[in-house]
Write a protein that binds this DNA or RNA. Structure first.
Lengths: 235, 235
DNA sequence: ATAAGCTATATATATGATAAAAAAACAAAC
DNA sequence: GTTTGTTTTTTTATCATATATATAGCTTAT
């Protein structure tokens, strides 16, 4: 069995194989994929499984199919970039400094506002999770915990504390992106441990209920990372 | 033929019927849907069509299915809220002032930053589209164009001008949400025509390349709408 | 009591046949 | 010669049925 797809059923295997291939540009946008029958041939699976995979990719905005016209790759503007699968394919397939920059430009919008909401709402239970994540970061500095996991946990708990389902839904999105892009950012500079105090600033502002300070501390944290990438791109 | 679903094939009809029903809470979260076979019975369609619909809803994060366990509704945190279909079902099915507030809290993060990026990038071709939308808004004030369409076009063109694929991808999302929620916001106060000058402020700052002014003008525009909702909720 | 094995039942997969849709080729009318 | 209407053809869409596989719950051996 294909180790990459272990644990998945045939349909899901094909979804991931095709999804990654499409995003990587193996099939021309607007142009056609192999026909249903040819896909069965190529991948040696039944029409049911093939059709179900195509339908799932259609649901994610990557494909469209019509009789006589075949299966076509949709234009990029139709791709559900916020679908964790699609995002993962995009990041793994075409990760560049420029894409990383664009991702950070989005976080620069999201996280400061989420922090501000967290400060405003004062949901103590959700805020305590931020505190725990911060402790994990400190422990990671001392080599007692995983730095990446602690960092992710911190940012996830902020999104949760916003108490807004739209921000909360972005957890999967940011989680996926952080995991994929971390090797990139870490390679550039000693990012992982240097910014504990910057993270603490965000937490402190949230605990105090200082909306404006939370927004600004979080913005500071994000824009530093963004500047790092921009500098790297200028080289 | 069911007029609501005209023009769609059977699979897509079932996707929308089930999607709307799930989001509205017709089926218990975590609990089960009718079995595959029962769904065929109920909707009088074949297993292929039924399975393909279930797979599409699975791709959107609403369902999960396993042998012997059946088809289950996923918890809300797994729903791809940024999928235009899901968003439409959520907004149409459960639109409340609170949900509208949460949506505006997200726009408050996105649009100011998109405006800032637009000002920074100075992509003249994309910026000219904002100008056209603004002209349409003015025309709409004089009854010569559709107010809602012009307003949507304005906000879409700003997202495009950000020149960032993640922001651009939010076009579908914000487009859907604006269309559904407009009857709500219009009902509250004379929102539609009053804010031409506020929109123009955003455009002017972008044209001048004044990043900070663009952010702040856009933020002002969004937060006014948010305050309106909050006041309404306090009544 | 616990773990290995069995059973029942749901989805997963395979395959054949038919329907419907739409592009392309063709024919007719003007 | 261009337009308009019709037929052809190809592809997906749908249906029906058979088989495989996975798993929750039960059974049984130890």
């Amino acid at each position: 069995m294909d180790k990459v797809h272990a644990g998945r059923n045939l349909t899901q295997q094909l979804v991931h194989t095709l999804g990654a291939a499409i995003v990587q540009g193996d099939y021309p946008i607007g142009g056609g994929l192999p026909s249903e029958a040819e896909l069965c041939e190529e991948h040696q699976i039944s029409r049911s499984a093939t059709r179900e995979a195509v339908k799932m990719l259609t649901a994610k905005g990557l494909l469209a199919s019509r009789p006589r016209q075949g299966i076509r790759v949709q234009s990029k503007t139709n791709w559900n970039m916020f679908d964790p699968d699609v995002l993962e394919w995009v990041l793994k397939g075409t990760l560049t400094l420029n894409l990383l920059k664009e991702f950070l430009q989005l976080r620069l919008a999201i996280e400061p506002e989420a922090s501000a909401l967290a400060a405003e709402n004062q949901n103590l239970e959700l805020i305590s999770r931020i505190s725990l994540a911060l402790k994990r970061m400190k422990a990671a500095d001392a080599g007692l915990d995983d730095s990446l996991e602690a960092d992710i946990e911190f940012h996830m708990s902020i999104l949760m504390a916003s108490d807004n389902p739209f921000y909360q839904q972005l957890r999967n999105f940011i989680d996926t992106a952080l995991r994929v892009s971390i090797r990139f950012t870490n390679r550039i500079k000693g990012v992982q441990t240097a910014d504990y105090s910057a993270h603490k600033d965000v937490y402190d502002a949230i605990v105090l209920g200082d909306t404006e300070a939370a927004r600004s501390a979080s913005r500071h944290l994000q824009s530093e990372a963004l500047e790092l990438i921009k500098n790297e791109m200028d080289k």
